[in-house]
Nucleic acid binder design. Structure first.
Lengths: 222, 222
DNA sequence: ACCTGAACACCGTTCAAGT
DNA sequence: ACCTGAACACCGTTCAAGT
């Protein structure tokens, strides 16, 4: 019997822009953004690459839509919430989203066309701060420092060259051996006395820095 | 007369790993990381693409070396400096570097092999904080929140869809017309009353957030 | 209206062949 | 030792042709 062709066992039904975007997200989640090619995406949808161009202008339009899809996953802060609790919750939700779609942060770089979910998200965050008495300028300060922190934290987190505590321990041990302690004494100390301690997880730093920033914003009520 | 071939007017002399990396940085600075292909890089060096493989293992090794080159441009904090001033200076220097090599931030994502300049940099930052009486844990907190902020701020800054105040004004006007104010009222207000005000520059937010974080670290002297 | 096959101008990398 | 030409297995996108 013939091996099932890639096409036969793929989803059938008419192609739509929405199906294209959803499948692109699934492909990038599963195999990384580098694996997202028009040919592979088409194959998953049971069509040829060229068919995609009937539903999206080009690959860039798919990437725009993927970012907007990801933003849509962050639930919106309400204007009647206390700002500090609302911003804390939003920051954690944003981090969760960016971790579950590791391609999203990298795509932010090149996106020039914010979609409706992205705009709605920004509008809700600004609205919550304004409703809590923040001036326009203080709202801009708060949004800038919070988003910078969230994006940068996840960027570092996604870069970590290990996925589990065991990986980390193994890597740190190797590093300690390869990095002569006299060349990088402080890096060696940090590895030995902090990173290699039981229970260490870099992700725990997230709320430490987040609360430092929220407290700072609370104090600067200009 | 014949048009000068791409090769004839390129730098001559023996190929070295250092020349390959330096030229890769120049190419990426000038035309973006997407334009950095082995073929184009070789052409700039007056050789064929395949010659590069005698000096670097593959393209990934070039990207690793580029990131380390970029880190090498940030001058190191000294252990005898006041931590707050030293961290402020370093943050500004890091932002300057990341802005002048817009490809660097995107490459951080995928780099798994920190080079000597990168390690030296981290060692110096940790060393300065420790010399100022920071505990190992407080050093880790400080480094995490500062680098997250710096990386995230530049990520947002590089994403801004305008390069000059004039571009910004033009874009904001178009946005105000395209975004119905009743759908995104707070975004419209922020654009009108903040972004479109004379003298506005997003980059000015950098030190606002930075000082908020430095003051927060100063207070948490646990 | 929607899908496709062939083609174009690219990639990174391998390999055997040149000097 | 160092460089290269041809080749392989890919890209995104165009165009004219099919249904």
């Amino acid at each position: 019997m013939a091996a099932p062709s890639a096409k036969t066992d793929r989803k059938k039904g008419r192609l739509t822009r929405e199906r294209v975007v959803r499948e692109a997200v699934a492909l990038a989640d599963a195999h990384g953004i580098a694996a997202l090619s028009m040919r592979k995406l088409a194959d998953r949808l049971g069509v040829e690459a060229m068919s995609l161009y009937h539903h999206v202008a080009n690959k860039d339009a798919i990437l725009d839509a993927m970012v907007d899809f990801a933003f849509g996953e962050i639930s919106l802060p309400r204007a009647d919430e206390n700002w500090k609790a609302a911003m804390r919750t939003r920051a954690i939700a944003a981090r969760t989203m960016l971790r579950s779609h590791p391609w999203a942060l990298g795509l932010l770089d090149s996106r020039r066309n914010p979609g409706p979910a992205t705009l709605r998200h920004h509008d809700a965050v600004i609205g919550c701060l304004r409703a809590n008495g923040f001036s326009v300028a203080r709202t801009a300060h708060a949004y800038s420092v919070l988003d910078s922190y969230i994006y940068g934290f996840v960027l570092q987190e996604l870069n970590l060259p290990f996925d589990t505590p065991d990986d980390l321990a193994a890597l740190a041990e190797t590093m300690l051996q390869h990095l002569p302690a006299d060349t990088y004494p402080h890096l060696a100390e940090m590895t030995r006395e902090h990173v290699l301690q039981p229970g260490y997880a870099y992700g725990d730093e997230f709320t430490v820095g987040l609360d430092l920033i929220l407290d700072g914003l609370d104090r600067n009520d200009d």
